[in-house]
Amino acid sequence: MPITVCHSQNDSNESVYTYKSGSFDGIGKWYKGREISHVMGYQGMSWLERSEREQEEETSTLLENMNLEPTDVVADIGAGSGYHVFKIVPKVSEGKVYAVDIQQEMLNAMEKKKNRLNQTNIELIKGSEKSTKLPKNSVDKVLMVDVYHEFEFPVEMIASIKQALKPDGKIYLIEYRGEDPTVPIKRLHKMTEDQAVKEMNAAGFTLIENIDNLPWQHCMVFGVK
């Protein structure tokens, strides 16, 4: 039987999560009908940096979709090894990139590359499972690439992102298309547009557009309602 946890004094959002037996790739925790997947560990860093990633995901097209301005402040949540961070930095030369991750090993890898390239407009932040630790009202654009489905506490994390966004800020939610069985990614590491919209609407965001020009992924743009 599924177990829905009731409100508690320490965590007022716990009642939105359900715990039940799930799949091997899941954590046994569900949100709005979606099982949350395990986090990809730092041991998979080489996969993030694989040479064929541009061909498979068309990262350059994704960055074009973001319409980055030189003065933009961008936050990459779940930045991993910094694959996207170091591609964004040259495009926001008068702005800033916050690179947020919860794994110290990922932050260490980005720190080494940041120092090697002498990049001064990257700020590394060690987030938590419930917070990005970003400054309030500081960010123009938030990028989440194949990471949202791994948030153990999606309600708390999106609330944290909402606080960090400027009033006209946007979220770029990139997820492998759950509607497409030909996308060669495990089921729990995909999301459908309908599921993403359901969860983001609950957090106070509305879908502005889903830019359908990436080979395997949705590029969903959300703004505050």
Rank of each mutant, 00 (worst) to 15 (best):
G26D: 06
I27C: 05
I27G: 01
G28F: 00
G28V: 00
K32D: 02
I36G: 00
S37N: 03
H38A: 08
V39P: 02
V39G: 02
M40H: 08
M45S: 14
W47A: 15
E49Y: 02
S51W: 12
R53P: 05
E54G: 09
Q55A: 13
S60I: 15
N65L: 13
M66I: 09
N67Q: 14
N67F: 06
E69I: 12
E69G: 05
P70M: 06
D72A: 11
V73P: 04
G80P: 07
G80S: 09
S81D: 01
S81H: 00
G82D: 04
G82M: 03
G82I: 01
H84K: 02
F86V: 04
K87W: 09
V92K: 04
E94Y: 14
E94V: 14
G95E: 06
I102K: 09
I102A: 03
Q103C: 03
Q104T: 11
M106T: 07
M106V: 11
M106H: 11
L107M: 08
L107T: 04
A109W: 04
A109F: 09
E111R: 14
E111L: 14
E111F: 11
K114D: 10
L117E: 15
N118A: 15
Q119A: 15
N121I: 08
L124A: 08
I125G: 12
I125M: 13
E129D: 14
S131V: 04
T132R: 03
K133I: 14
P135N: 09
N137W: 13
N137Y: 13
N137C: 14
S138T: 08
D140L: 02
V142W: 02
V142A: 04
V142C: 04
M144R: 01
M144C: 11
V147H: 08
V147I: 12
Y148P: 01
H149S: 06
E150W: 01
E150S: 07
E150L: 02
F151C: 00
E152K: 10
F153C: 04
K162T: 09
Q163G: 10
Q163I: 04
L165P: 02
D168L: 11
